[in-house]
Design a protein around this nucleic acid. Structure first.
Lengths: 139, 139
DNA sequence: TTGGGTGCAAACTATTTGCATTCGA
DNA sequence: TCGAATGCAAATAGTTTGCACCCAA
C-alpha cells in the first residue's frame, strides 16, 4: 500500500485524474496506508511533509478523488467527512467517544439484502456502521 | 402514531423530559407520523402550525430528545442531521439525488454481526444505510 | 420562588465559491 | 499557448453558545 510518487501518479492517471503537484502530494498522504482522514487532517499532514497546499485545494481534491472512486467518503460524524483510502469492500466501526474510525472486514459482518428497492433507482453503496462507546468497565 | 397533546406530554415525561410548551410543540410535529426531519424542517413545521419556537430551542430540543432516546439521529448526509421518529429497529435507504430518507424494515435486511469488537467498548447502535440514486432509465 | 428552559444574536466550524494567477500538456 | 488547476479570501450553512428573561413545579 505505501506508494511512491510514480505509483501514485499512475494511480491518478488510471482514474482519469490529471496528476498535478498538489494532487500527488495529497494522494501520497492518503495512500501511505489504509486510513481514515478528515479534510483538515489531510491538510495538516500534507503541509507537515513539505509542499504547501491550500485548504480549498484539499477540499476540492478530496471531492474529486471521491467522485472518481480513488477514495471512499465515510459519513458517520455530523461534524466532518472522512476519506477512506481502503478501497476493498468493508464496514466501519465508529468510536463515538473520540470520533475515530476502524475498518471491519466484510467477513465479520454478513448483510443479506432482500431486493425490493423502489423502482428506478440503482444502489450506489451499502454502508454498515457499528457505533461503539467505551463501556464503563475496561479502558 | 399520531399523538395528541396529552399523549405527547406523557411520552416526554416517560423519558424524563420536562414537558414545556415548545418541547411539546416540537414533539407533536415529530410524532404526527413516522418521518425523517432535519432541524430546519422541524423549525419550519413548528412555526407553520402556530406557536413560535426559536432556532436555538429546536436544535437544543432535538439534541435532548435524541439523547433521551425519544428520537433517533440519522447521519447520512454531511449537510444535515435527520431525526427519525420511528423508534422500531429498522434500516435506511437514502436517495442521494434529493437527500430523502426511507425506512427499511429489519425483515428486509439481514445483518449477522460476528462478535469480535475491541475490548472495553459497548455497541451503541448499528446503522445500515443503502445509498441509491435515480438510475438512467425510469423516473 | 427559583432553577431549568427559552430567545436572540453573535460565534464557530466545516465546506464551498469567485476570481485572478499559475501550471501541465 | 490555453484551458484546467490553484490559492486566497470571502461567502455559506448548519449548529452551538452566552446571557438576560421567563415559566413549570
Amino acid at each position: 500500500m505505501p506508494e511512491n510518487r510514480d505509483q501514485v501518479i499512475e494511480r491518478l492517471r488510471g482514474h482519469g485524474i490529471t496528476p498535478t503537484q498538489q494532487r500527488v502530494e495529497i494522494a501520497q498522504v492518503l495512500f501511505e496506508r489504509h486510513q481514515h482522514l478528515s479534510a483538515d487532517q489531510v491538510l495538516a499532514r500534507v503541509n507537515a511533509r513539505d509542499a504547501s497546499v491550500s485548504k480549498a485545494t484539499v477540499y476540492n481534491t478530496l471531492g474529486l478523488f471521491a467522485e472518481k472512486g480513488l477514495v471512499r467518503e465515510v459519513i458517520v460524524d455530523p461534524a466532518r467527512v472522512f476519506y477512506d483510502s481502503n478501497l476493498d469492500p468493508h464496514h466501519h466501526l465508529f468510536h463515538v467517544d473520540n470520533g475515530t474510525l476502524e475498518d471491519i472486514p466484510v467477513s465479520q459482518v454478513n448483510v443479506d439484502r432482500l431486493p425490493d428497492l423502489p423502482a428506478g433507482v440503482a444502489v450506489e453503496g451499502v454502508d454498515v456502521i457499528i457505533r461503539v462507546r467505551r463501556s464503563g468497565a475496561a479502558q
